[in-house]
Simulated scan of single mutants.
Amino acid sequence: MASFQQYKTKTGYKWLFKIGVGTDPKTGKRKTTTRRGFKTKKEAAAAAAEFQKEIDNNNLVVRNEITFEDVFKEWWAVHLKTIKDSTQASKVSKFNKHILEKFGKMKIKSITKAYCQKVINRIAEDIDSVQDIKIQANLVFKYALRMDYITTNPMEYVVIPKNEKEFLSSEEDTRNYWEKDEIKLFLEKVREQLPHQDYVMFYILIFTGMRKGELLALEWKDVDLIERTINIKQTLFFKDGKEIFQTTKKYHSKRVVSIDDHTAQILKKWRTQQKELLLSNGITSEAKYVLIRDDMRPLRLAYPNDVLNRMIAKNKLHRITVHGLRHSHASVLFEAGASLKEVQARLGHKEIQTTMNIYTHVTKTAKEKTAETFKKYMEL
């Protein structure tokens, strides 16, 4: 909207107007221009109205030419300030690998529902996490809708195709957890074949249900061996080879986990051994973290994965991921009779549905116990 002002010249009084011409893309600040030399305010107002029409027409051309990548950059500049570094890296990777190559150079107003569906169908052939790709792309289209770059969101009604294997039944679902006997066997093999710190690492992951990043960021000051508790309040993330410590990802992730006597004893002995190992290397200062490298930095984030994969291959164990150790902890808790709410609190899940998803994959032993309970009841 234009503003008007009278000013004095050598020949008398004249009028000027100031009018906004958009936003500077680099600074985000509003840009204005000034036109002078009008004899009356009415003449200045008429000129301002004509100038506004030119601006509107130019903006219309610009909006018709704007690409998906242009909108993405604009949206990302705002969005990245609302998420953590680890989430930023993950999202950028998804856009670079799957979204920008398909939509980036296209004018956003020319992207159709049919094209979006075709892209999602193609991505679904390559990866299982196509739902998340749709969600991320949809955030950009929603932003474009809010900014009036488009009038409808072509991604909104895209359907996620089912993978062929979802229609096929299998004798046994792939399970990403170990049962009690498998856990015991694994820990025996680790004790026999790996350094003691690795044994401590896997033991704590299995017996507390901690996330990998939470354990690698765990400091000794947050371990209370008298009260037998672990205070989980941060997680580790690596960016460009540098350790970044973040508060745990959600409010419910900040929690105090109780540990049993045996776990407390393992940690107590490890603390003593850790000090002795450091002294043998001429280091007199105490370690800050429970698990460390030779230079006292936290372990690499990929280290548990690498060691677990080698142990599984070497000993021909049922294949699971490091996150599967967390599921193993939950499954054993359910088998032992723990409630959904108890497991939810221990694992730091914000939503009960997350815990229930694990519950649906309870161990074979638990399923057999259910059948046995029914059989015994019927015999009464």
Rank of each mutant, 00 (worst) to 15 (best):
E125A: 15
S169Y: 10
F95L: 09
K10D: 10
L194S: 14
K53E: 10
Y115M: 10
F374N: 08
D173Q: 13
G337N: 04
T33W: 00
N309Y: 12
V223Q: 05
L225C: 03
L325H: 04
E351H: 06
R346I: 13
Q344H: 01
T67A: 10
I206H: 00
T355H: 04
I320H: 03
P304R: 03
I266N: 00
M147Q: 14
F141Q: 06
L139A: 12
A264Y: 04
F68N: 06
F72H: 07
E69M: 13
D126W: 01
L236V: 12
A47T: 05
M311I: 15
I259L: 10
A313W: 02
K364Y: 07
F141L: 06
L187D: 03
T11V: 06
K31I: 13
L60N: 14
H98D: 15
A137E: 02
S86L: 02
A49D: 07
K42W: 00
R211V: 12
L333E: 08
H262Y: 12
S90Y: 06
T87R: 00
M147P: 05
D132P: 08
Y251N: 13
Y143R: 01
F95E: 01
G104S: 01
Y115Q: 07
Q344A: 03
M106T: 02
K134Y: 02
K107L: 10
